[in-house]
């Protein structure tokens, strides 16, 4: 337990509501299975964002339920085993654009409060 708390000081959990966007963005590179998605997010952020499997898989299933990603069991090219591959659907691509623009607005709004234009340091 104690080690987990220590880790949490250095790493930030994925912000509520942004995980969907991150998954969709990851899948823009092409199909991937759950483990790859999690690893990719972690690696891209230099291990800054901690991926909890407990939220990753439910999120994937939620996206599948909404039709933003589709899933299929396929054999991995490097390992002789089947994995559940997720693919971005057309609906998912549109959703990604929506979430992206929402996130931008949000980030800009937050930035305007935090670093007002007149008070540049």
């Amino acid at each position: 337990m104690s080690s987990m708390t220590k880790q949490a000081q250095q790493r930030v959990g994925v912000l509520q509501g942004t995980l969907d966007m991150l998954i969709l963005r990851t899948l823009l590179y092409g199909p991937a299975h759950g483990h790859q998605i999690g690893k990719h997010i972690q690696r891209t952020t230099n291990e800054f964002l901690q991926m909890q499997h407990g939220s990753l898989y439910p999120a994937l299933h939620r996206l599948e339920e909404r039709g933003w990603v589709s899933a299929k069991w396929e054999t991995a090219p490097d390992r002789n085993r089947e994995f559940k591959y997720y693919r971005l659907t057309d609906k998912g691509k549109k959703q990604l654009l929506v979430e992206e623009s929402q996130w931008k607005q949000m980030a800009e709004a937050v930035a305007r409060v935090m670093w007002p234009a007149g008070e540049e340091s």
Partner: peptide, 18 residues
């Protein structure tokens, strides 16, 4: 350890499925 509690994952997936 990296995966965490599988039952929890399952329950949260069920919640995701409604």
């Amino acid at each position: 350890r990296a995966f965490g509690n599988p039952t929890l994952i399952r329950e949260q997936s069920h919640l995701a499925w409604g």
